[in-house]
């Protein structure tokens, strides 16, 4: 009798579940398509290292948060769901913040308020609202992985552009010779573009990424 009641069990990596991970990487990217998590994407993309640490923090918070919210989804009254969600995220972010301060103090200082602002990173709340509140823990976990990786891809792309052309470095290694001593490319008159380091360029870079992505996939083009 119990066999009739039980729904057929879905394999852990079914096609549907794989799609949850792969879609946010491109066609449903959280930054360029869903317009979530822009603030941090713009503010901390000066160096690739910062972008990677930020992605890892968001991945940890989103994966844990999505699972917790998904487990609690039937217990949360909808009137106060936002407060419940925020408390879950805030506790997770406090943990991440303390870990960063303990093991990567330099990085924690560079990221300054932006670690705290993971709480209000719209990716997190957006995925809670749109996915975890309506789905089981395992798909929610995969959705979290997919979305934070999609977020990470954009962050890393932008930061690679900004670090190479703005600072002439990658992972802190100087690419084109030493600027102050004027060796390498600098000796023949190459200059780093200081505009690229400034915050507004991050917006241009994301705009360009959107342009390339939508030119390749016409289905994503907006009417206006």
């Amino acid at each position: 009798m119990s066999e009739n009641v039980k729904a057929p069990k879905e394999p852990l990596f079914s096609k549907k579940n794989k799609k949850l991970v792969s879609e946010p990487l491109n066609d449903n990217n959280p930054v360029t398509i869903q317009v979530l998590g822009i603030c941090s994407a713009l503010a901390i993309t000066v160096s690739v290292e910062q972008a990677l640490v930020m992605t890892a923090s968001v991945l940890a918070v989103l994966a844990a948060g999505n699972v917790v919210i998904s487990l609690l989804r039937n217990l949360i009254p909808s009137r106060i769901r936002i407060i419940v969600q925020l408390v879950v995220v805030a506790s997770l972010v406090i943990i991440v913040n303390e870990i960063l301060k303990a093991y990567l103090p330099d990085m924690a200082e560079k990221l300054s308020v932006f670690v705290g602002l993971i709480i209000t990173n719209c990716i997190i709340m957006g995925r809670f609202e749109a996915f975890a509140m309506a789905n089981k823990p395992w798909p929610s976990f995969l959705d979290a992985i997919g979305n934070s990786l999609g977020y990470g891809i954009v962050l890393v792309l932008v930061s690679i552009i900004r670090e190479i052309f703005g600072a002439g470095k990658i992972f802190g290694i100087q690419l084109f010779g030493d600027r102050i001593e004027g060796t390498g490319l600098y000796s023949v008159g190459y200059m780093d573009n200081n505009l690229i380091i400034l915050a507004p360029f991050a917006l241009f870079a994301v705009g360009l990424i959107i342009w390339v992505q939508r030119a390749r996939n016409k289905a994503l083009i907006e009417d206006h």
């Binding site: 994301v206 705009g207 959107i210 390339v212 992505q213 016409k218 907006e222 206006h224």
Partner: peptide
């Protein structure tokens, strides 16, 4: 066309 909407807003 690919810049319409979000892209141009960023710029």
């Amino acid at each position: 066309a690919p810049m319409r909407g979000l892209g141009i807003t960023f710029v």
